[in-house]
Simulated assay, not measured.
Amino acid sequence: MTSHHPQLVTAKLNQLHPTQITVGKLEVTLKRQQWNAMNRKARAEALDSHWFPAVAGPDGNYFIVDHHHFGLALIEEDVKQVSLMILKDLSWLEHGAFWNAMDHHQWVHPFDGNGVRQKYHAVPEHLTHLQDDPYRSLAGEVRRAGGYAKDATPFSEFLWADFFRPQIARELIEQDFSVALAQAKQLAATPAARYLPGWCGPIAQV
């Protein structure tokens, strides 16, 4: 009997494959701080209740399609095993067809730290090889500050990162993050950002 429910499995965290090239390292640091603030019971409950969405791919590998920041934070905190929710089994496909199918489902984001699309082979094979994109960190902080709403659109924070990329200097993000954040929040409220997922509209004038 075929089940229509996602399959739930456990897997070694250090063997999971990412489906993007970059993360915001600031966000990874925040995830680690949140983890360190938990006691042992809270950590166990967090792991029990958190399922990484994943796809079964070629060569017996699992590819996570979300929560890369949390996964990398857990690796850096020496967590060994996590739970996966298998969205689809594409393990029977050869590599080229697999990545095309992943792209079709919007389960891969092969863009580098400059927002430039790369070939699929540029996606690293290990979470610890993910590159830092400061604009992804900025986009995450803008959302947490209420600059836009959380949205189910795949890789929505990367869309916001690309919006900020040509308008805020990378050096400013790296050298004075609070100023960059203030600028980004103002930009997020402008009509120019209205095409982005979670846009909240212009700030009312008082």
Rank of each mutant, 00 (worst) to 15 (best):
Gln183Leu: 06
Ala122Val: 04
Thr29Val: 11
Gly96Phe: 11
Thr2Cys: 11
Asp132Pro: 06
Gln167Trp: 03
Phe70Pro: 06
Phe155Val: 10
His126Gln: 14
Thr19Arg: 02
Asp89Trp: 00
Leu84Ala: 01
Pro134Ser: 02
Ala182His: 13
Ala44Glu: 14
Lys80Tyr: 11
Ala193Thr: 03
Asp103Trp: 07
Ala145Thr: 08
Arg144Val: 07
Gln20Glu: 09
Thr22Val: 12
Pro6Arg: 00
Gln20Asn: 04
Arg165Ala: 06
Thr19Gly: 02
Ala189Met: 01
Val65Asn: 06
Leu172Glu: 01
Leu181Asn: 14
Ala11Arg: 00
Met85Cys: 13
Pro124Met: 00
Glu45Trp: 03
Leu16Met: 04
Glu171Gln: 04
Ala101Trp: 14
Trp107Arg: 00
Asn14Trp: 07
Pro166Gly: 07
Lys88Val: 10
Leu159Glu: 02
Ala180Trp: 06
Ser83Glu: 09
Thr128Ser: 13
Val123Lys: 00
Gly24His: 03
Pro18Thr: 03
Tyr120His: 15
Gly147Phe: 02
Val65Met: 09
Tyr148Val: 07
Leu84His: 00
Gln183Glu: 06
Gln81Arg: 12
His17Ile: 14
Ala139Tyr: 13
Gln186Lys: 11
Ala193Ser: 08
Arg194His: 14
Gly113Phe: 13
Glu125Cys: 08
Ala188Arg: 07
Met85Ile: 06
Ala122Thr: 02
Gly96Glu: 15
Gly60Ser: 07
Ala169Tyr: 03
Glu157Tyr: 07
Thr29Asn: 06
Lys185Val: 13
His126Gly: 09
Asp103Pro: 04
His50Pro: 02
Leu196Gln: 05
Leu8Ile: 11
His67Thr: 05
Glu45Pro: 02
Ala101Met: 15
Gly24Gln: 05
Phe164Asp: 11
Leu130Val: 02
Lys25Ala: 15
Ala152Pro: 15
Val55Leu: 09
Ser3Phe: 04
Trp35Leu: 12
Pro191Ala: 05
Met38Glu: 10
Ala101Ile: 12
Val206Thr: 15
Val206Arg: 15
Lys31Ser: 04
Thr29Gln: 11
Val55Arg: 10
Ala204Met: 09
